[in-house]
């Protein structure tokens, strides 16, 4: 297990390193250069380049960036002069940025994973019946309809037309309801579909047949054997689900005017604030890679076949 964990950690570290390096040099390739505004005078541009350390050769800039990164210093923003990117992303004063996005993401996971498992179980145990068909239909729609279509529709219907829930902000429980709901639909659909399939597949597994042959009660077979084993594949999709929640938070933050990282990301790309883009890429990338790492290790812990295969 220890070997498996180390192997995974090494691979994750390599991924983060490649990601940072790749993005760094990618952003250096920008065709019209930084501060391309013709209104900036030559002297001014030279001073700006010096200020941001852009007058040095690229490899030196890279080393400096990596050195600063080890101290968790992501450099200065270009669009917001004088502001540190690290404080912009973390912003302990207002709680905006990363903490806000994490709050949204974690709340959505806590809501959608149990809901998805419950709905998938109901469908899987009633295979072929009305409830199952209904669930398949709903989850197919949930998987196919883009998150932003669903979010725009529900904010219009529940927020604007019916006026049941507020359409902006994310601090009170009432404000949190609609964003979490919009963000969770896709996840619920994915998880319930997977849960259903894995329950149905287990129906014909040898150990279930054995349990039946032993004359075990159905409730005991279902709870002790079927559901517990059906949960295994759910763990594997938690990694990709976290990644897709990221796209979801972009949309939900934009629609509900929540000051998370998504807004910064979009803004920094439109502003061509490369420092901020770089910083956000590093943060997001590392975060998701670590999530995947945790999922991998947890999966290795609960399913010995995985770590033995490596």
């Amino acid at each position: 297990m220890l070997k498996f964990t180390f192997k995974r950690m090494f691979s994750a570290a390599a991924t983060v390193f490649v990601l940072i390096t790749l993005t760094f040099f990618l952003l250096k390739m920008i065709p019209n250069g930084l501060f391309a505004d013709p209104n900036i005078s030559k002297e001014m541009r030279a001073r700006l380049y010096e200020l941001y350390g852009l007058d040095k050769p690229v490899w030196q800039q890279y080393l400096i960036y990596m050195k600063n990164l080890l101290r968790l210093d992501l450099g200065d923003s270009i669009a917001y002069p004088g502001r540190k990117i690290t404080t912009m992303i973390l912003d302990p004063a207002t709680g905006n940025g990363l903490p806000m996005s994490m709050k949204l993401g974690i709340a959505s996971l806590l809501f959608s994973v149990p809901t998805g498992i419950a709905l998938g179980t109901v469908a899987g145990l009633n295979r072929g019946r009305f409830l199952d068909k209904l669930m398949i239909g709903i989850s197919l729609v949930g998987v196919s309809v883009p998150s932003f279509v669903f979010a725009t529709m529900s904010v219009t219907v529940f927020g604007n037309i019916l006026g049941w829930l507020p359409t902006t902000g994310f601090s009170t429980p009432r404000e949190m309801a609609l964003p979490i709901f919009c963000l969770s639909l896709g996840t619920i659909a994915t998880i319930s579909r997977l849960m259903r399939t894995s329950l149905v597949e287990l129906e014909s597994a040898d150990f279930i047949k054995t349990a039946k042959a032993k004359g075990l009660r159905r409730s005991k077979i279902v709870f002790r054997h079927q559901i517990r084993n059906a949960l295994l594949p759910i763990v594997t999709v938690l990694g990709p689900i976290t990644a897709s929640l990221l796209t979801g938070t972009f949309v939900v933050e934009a629609i509900f005017n929540i000051k998370g990282l998504g807004g910064y990301y979009v803004e920094s790309i439109s502003n061509r604030d490369y420092g901020l883009v770089m910083g956000l890429t590093v943060i997001f990338g590392t975060f998701l890679v670590v999530c995947n790492l945790v999922v991998d290790i947890v999966y290795g812990l609960i399913d010995p076949r995985i770590r033995l295969k490596q």
Binding site: S11, T15, V18, A243, L246, I269, V277, F284, L288, N292
Partner: peptide, 20 residues
């Protein structure tokens, strides 16, 4: 395996910045 672990959106957005 190293590249596949990089979240695709992050790469797409980075390319979007560079290529316009």
């Amino acid at each position: 395996n190293v590249l596949i672990a990089i979240p695709y959106l992050v790469i797409v957005l980075a390319i979007r910045v560079v290529a316009g």
